[in-house]
Amino acid sequence: MVDVYTFVSGPLAWAAFTICIGGCLYRLISLIVLAYKKERFIFTYMSFSYGLRSIVHWITPFATENWRRHPVLTVVTFAFHISLVIAPIFLLSHIVLWEEAWDLRWPALPDALADTMAVIVIAGCIFFLVRRLKLPEVQFVTTASDYVILAIVAAPFVTGFLAYHQWVAYPYMVIAHIISGEVMLVAIPFTRLSHMVFSPLTRAYMGSEFGKVRMARDW
């Protein structure tokens, strides 16, 4: 048991972080190289200020027409994405691991808040799942991979939540939590979770086109 734990939290974690960061960099760089080779005009039209203007509007709740049209979705998706990113980074138990391994430390969230955030992420996944199953316009364009992605995202939070509360099979749950977290890290660059990396770019390009050429708002 201890051996397994040592393995998943040691070499496997190394591998997962390496693949995640390396993979994201690879995807990002290869996209930029491709743009440079075949669509160099993208750099010509890309505008920092207009790109940022567009991104800021879209990462602000209710700042766009479409966010306002879907108030429930907007609240859920913002709470979901913020929790998804913030909770793992500022969870005390994670910070302790960083401290043990690297002697790095930073302020932690209160456990109760982090716990709530995990629940928000899980609830968000359920919301997105129900949306996929129930809304015809979402269901029509849903593929199997969409469910897989949801499961990949939900797993570390479900297992983490259960491990934290130590309700069932704690040691197994911790290992399942670590593995599922690593699966998610590895999946980021190679599935449509890569929207984490790409969406600022697509948004910035559309914002630049709208700002500089079309002189209209894209929100």
């Binding site: 743009a35 669509e39 479409n66 049209r69 364009v141 849903t142 593929t143 449509r192 770019l201």
Partner: peptide
């Protein structure tokens, strides 16, 4: 086609939010 189409196809999260447009 190049980077644009690749990014568009791979970034689309199939959320359906474009529908009402």
């Amino acid at each position: 086609t190049g980077a644009r189409l690749k990014a568009y196809v791979e970034t689309c999260i199939h959320c359906g939010l474009c529908s009402e447009a």
